[in-house]
């Protein structure tokens, strides 16, 4: 069974335009590129290593397209 990560990175594919700001500036290297594209042909980021996400949400704040956000999975 896959271990649940502390944070989930959510990508709204149909909003993404593939600028890759999120991939380039993620301090933890959570995101990568795997060649997938959305329906409009824009390359999408992929979640390369979800486990290392610190939940800083820089990707969310940098995204010009409101296409990526972080959800916390903390259950207290």
């Amino acid at each position: 069974m896959k271990k649940k990560t502390r944070y989930s990175v959510r990508i709204i594919a149909e909003r993404c335009k593939g600028c890759m700001f999120c991939v380039s500036f993620c301090p933890a290297g959570v995101l990568g590129r795997d060649g997938t594209a959305n329906a409009r042909g824009y390359p999408l980021p992929c979640i390369a290593s979800a486990a290392v996400c610190t939940g800083c949400a820089l990707c969310q704040k940098l995204c010009p397209d409101f296409a990526i956000f972080i959800e916390s999975n903390h259950v207290r």
Partner: peptide, 29 residues
């Protein structure tokens, strides 16, 4: 869940018209 900023946006108008790599959307964020 939806994007945490969605309630501040006219989501029915997204995606917006700015080019890939344009920064205007990020300033709006």
């Amino acid at each position: 869940n939806s994007h945490p900023s969605d309630s501040y946006l006219r989501t029915d108008r997204l995606p917006h018209l700015w080019c890939p790599g344009c920064g205007i959307g990020a300033t709006m964020n």
